[in-house]
Design a protein around this nucleic acid. Sequence first.
RNA 1: GGCGUCGAA
Length: 235
Amino acid sequence: VFIGSTLVDVYAKCGNMLEAHQAFQSLQERDVVIWTAMISGYARQGQGEMALELYVQMQQSGIKPDNATFLCILRACSSIGALGMCIMVHHDLSRSRAKLSVEVATALVRAYSKCGNMAAAQQIFDALPHHDLVSWNTLLAAYAQQGDCQAGLCCFEQMQQEGTNPDAVSFVSVLTACSHAGMVDEGLYYFELMHRKYGIPATVQHYTSLVDLLGRAGLLHKVEELLADVAMPLD
RNA sequence: GGCGUCGAA
């Protein structure tokens, strides 16, 4: 069973869902892990409908989804933006009566936000007893990507107040939000803060956001200034 | 053996 399962997972991880499906069909015993590996494969390929189909079949065959299954099916909801599917999975989670883990709640936050329901995303986030770095980053990225920079920056301040230090991923979202809103001073401020207060080295993503922000504001001299140190070694 | 955030593939 483990060898066949490993085979399914290897194909699924490579995105070869045709081969994965064949290997999956040839198994006589299918446990929750192997069903979930298939769902995960479809979800990562953006084949949300297939993921959902397997999720339903799995339960029909008497296998109960566990935490990992929920994470994978929620990834599928996110990737195709299927709000109805997201709500259905949310119901399944409530029905299971288990307390939401921070991982599953975070996946729900992401799924609702990708389906365009920020109110539901925020509500699930608020109901969490404890917010960790990843859950903060998820909410922050959601607001930044929706272009709600005010909510995003608010979220960023709140996370610090509640004692979670932002990381490089957090700052990508913050700079994205500033860039989206054309907030030059704020963008420069947060870029500085990242290095000075948190000692986080800037990545290409951070530079890209900031250059975009400065460029669209017509501040080309600032762009040159910013890139001078970076470009020097390339000359 | 399947496993939550930006990005990447």
